[in-house]
Design a protein around this nucleic acid. Sequence first.
DNA 1: AGGTGTTTATTTGTGG
DNA 2: CCACAAATAAACACCT
Length: 257
Amino acid sequence: MPRPGKSSYSEQKPPYSYISLTAMAIQSSEEKMLPLSDIYKFIMERFPYYRENTQRWQNSLRHNLSFNDCFIKIPRRPDQPGKGSFWALHPACGDMFENGSFLRRRKRFKLPRPTPALPPRPPPDPRHAHYHSYGLHSGQPTHSFKHPFAIENIIGRECRGVMPPGSVPISSVMSQLGYPLPTQLWPGMGALSSDFPPFSLPVKSIYHHQPSSGQGMPAVPMPIKPTPTLGTLGLQRCQDGGQGKTSCTLHPSLLLP
DNA sequence: AGGTGTTTATTTGTGG
DNA sequence: CCACAAATAAACACCT
């Protein structure tokens, strides 16, 4: 029984910040990661104070998970069904509370700044005057050419093919890459209809172009690895019908509704 | 609708 | 007193 005028032990707020409570929960787990609901559970089991006003402190805790770089989200694998992601501690945050105070950290853990934005590049010229190929890492122009589709021998190599299910014509990829769709006949093609005939693009050509987000198109994530993969460009590999060439199509996840 | 996650804004607390 | 960390509130998006 709590004495009058004095709160009982269980009513007292534990001297731990939400960050330290969360870190304790995560570190107590076998896999060093927990879903949100288990973090709640850990705290409520151990600290009776947090069995009340759950709406309030759980909102604060979620704020902390998102706001603090020391917490990272780990997606569930298909064999780990359940709600939400797993939360873990960023490996680089070390012992956040080495000063012994779980109430206040010495310094906020901040992730290094993301790579600086690449220098702006000129928009593609709708009159097909000059087009540039941009280095993936330098962001600097590497080649220039006259025709918007005259990229690394694309013209003459493109082929008509049967589009695999869920894929889109390379014309979509081209607009994704920041190139305008042709408004006139171009070599090797027949008359253009409003329904642009599907064709494909050699993989190698895609690698040499910096993607951009066009009007109404989702931004293509910039590749961060030295060797970009199709996936990082939002592309997927496909075979051209009958041609046997390896080509790409825009990944279905990037399709507009 | 409810759980999860992100973000912004404001207030409160702590340490130097 | 000041800077900064933490707590709180709240709006909102997304997903199941």
